[in-house]
Computed example of a mutant assay.
Amino acid sequence: MTIKNSGKFIIQKEKLIIYLFVLSVVFADILGNGNLNLLYFFGLFLIFKNLKIQVSFLKDMVIFFVPFCLMILGEIFLSGNTFSPVKVLVYSLKILVCISLLSYTKKRFWVVDHLTIIKNICGLFEIMLVISLLTINKPIFWRLNDVINRFSKTRLKFLYSEPSVLGILCGLLVIILLYYIFDNKKNYMLLKEIVLLAVIILLTFSMSGIVYTAIGIIVLFLFQVFKNKEVIPRRMLTYFLLGICLLIIILSTNNPISNRFFSMFLGTDGSYNFRWSAAVNVFRKTMEITRYWGMGLGNMNTPSGLSFLLNIGIDYKFANSFLYFFTENGILGIIYTIYLFLICTYNCIKSSKNIRPLKVGVLAFAFVSQIAGGYYTDPILWIMYGIVCSNEKTVIN
Rank of each mutant, 00 (worst) to 15 (best):
F45W: 11
S307Q: 13
D269I: 06
T154K: 03
C122M: 05
I334A: 09
P303H: 08
M300N: 02
S351E: 09
E328F: 06
L242K: 08
L124V: 11
Q12K: 09
G216P: 00
L246M: 08
G361E: 09
L247E: 13
N137V: 03
V368P: 00
Y179V: 01
V22R: 01
S352F: 02
F221V: 09
T290N: 03
K107L: 07
G294C: 04
K186I: 01
I76T: 06
I121E: 03
M1F: 06
N311Y: 10
N145D: 14
R235P: 05
G74N: 12
G386F: 04
T268L: 10
V388D: 06
R143Q: 11
L93S: 13
N273K: 15
L101R: 06
L309N: 02
I217C: 04
I18T: 12
S258V: 06
L93I: 13
V55Y: 15
T302C: 04
L309R: 00
G361I: 04
F261L: 09
Y324D: 05
V111N: 12
F365Q: 02
L222S: 10
T154W: 02
R235K: 15
Q224Y: 00
R284K: 14
N259I: 01
L237A: 13
N149Q: 11
V211Q: 11
F158S: 01
I371Q: 10
N259V: 03
P233N: 05
I396E: 01
K138Y: 12
S208D: 10
L266A: 01
P256S: 10
N311V: 00
L166W: 09
F223H: 03
T116P: 02
M236W: 12
G373L: 07
S352C: 04
E392N: 06
T394G: 03
T327P: 09
F77N: 03
W382Y: 07
L310W: 14
V130L: 15
Y339W: 10
Y385N: 01
F341R: 04
L89H: 06
L102E: 05
D315K: 15
K153N: 07
Y375G: 12
F9P: 00
I148N: 13
F68W: 05
F221T: 00
L242G: 11
L96Q: 02
Y346W: 14
S352G: 07
R155Y: 08
F125K: 00
V26N: 02
S161W: 00
V62F: 15
F326E: 01
I176S: 07
S152N: 12
L191H: 09
I118H: 02
L36G: 05
D269A: 10
I175Y: 01
E328A: 04
L172I: 07
V362G: 03
T253G: 05
F151Q: 04
I127F: 14
N397F: 12
Y212A: 05
L297R: 03
I131W: 10
I380K: 09
N254E: 02
T2S: 12
I17L: 13
G123N: 07
F261A: 06
L16S: 09
T116Y: 12
S92N: 09
L78P: 05
G270S: 14
L197Q: 14
N50F: 10
F318T: 14
G296A: 04
D60W: 13
